[in-house]
């Protein structure tokens, strides 16, 4: 069953990339998609199947607009610091460490990428539940982990119902 899903995803991707619908190209696509999905089946879908996957995707999509807003703010923040005179007076960088309450790998990855994309903070290292974060100013260092951990936890249902 996973093999068929994989094949359909691969074949849709082939159609988008090639854009030709004659018999020759379609046959080539079917052959190469079969080979690729046979070889790389164990890289995807290794997690055991569980319910609520679609609801998780929907909640993740509702998380994206907030993330986009934060990315825009982050870029404006960095651009503002970079274009003002006296860069060294405006920043006060610092490496901080905190422990997270998130358990699943996927939510940790999402949380780390979100930290990197939000204003003034960047993830250096994640080991088990310790996050090493480099903060550009004192104000942004105080805001961690804060609101974002709540939101990520809500997306992946980490903190129970």
């Amino acid at each position: 069953m996973h093999f068929i899903y994989m094949f359909l995803i691969m074949f849709g991707f082939w159609i988008v990339l090639s854009g030709k619908f004659d018999a020759f190209h379609i046959t080539l696509g079917v052959i190469s998609c079969l080979i690729v999905s046979f070889l790389s089946l164990d890289l995807f879908f290794h997690e055991t199947k569980k319910k609520g996957r679609i609801a998780e995707v929907v909640r993740f999509l509702s998380y994206i607009p907030w993330l986009v807003k934060e990315i825009v703010l982050a870029t404006i923040h960095v651009a503002f610091i970079a274009l003002r005179p006296n860069v060294k007076d405006n920043i006060d960088p610092k490496v901080i460490m905190f422990k997270t309450r998130l358990k699943k790998d996927l939510s940790k990855v999402t949380f780390a990428n979100s930290i990197t994309l939000t204003p003034g903070t960047i993830t250096i290292k994640v080991s088990d539940d310790e996050f090493y974060v480099h903060a550009l100013t004192k104000k942004t260092a105080e805001g961690l982990p804060g609101e974002m951990e709540e939101r990520v936890g809500k997306v992946f249902k980490e903190f129970g119902e």
Binding site: I71, A74, T75, A79, I91, P93, I122
Partner: peptide, 13 residues
């Protein structure tokens, strides 16, 4: 590290 702030965020958006 602070250069990485500029390179990582500005480039994405």
């Amino acid at each position: 590290y602070s250069r990485m702030h500029a390179a990582g965020k500005g480039d994405t958006l």
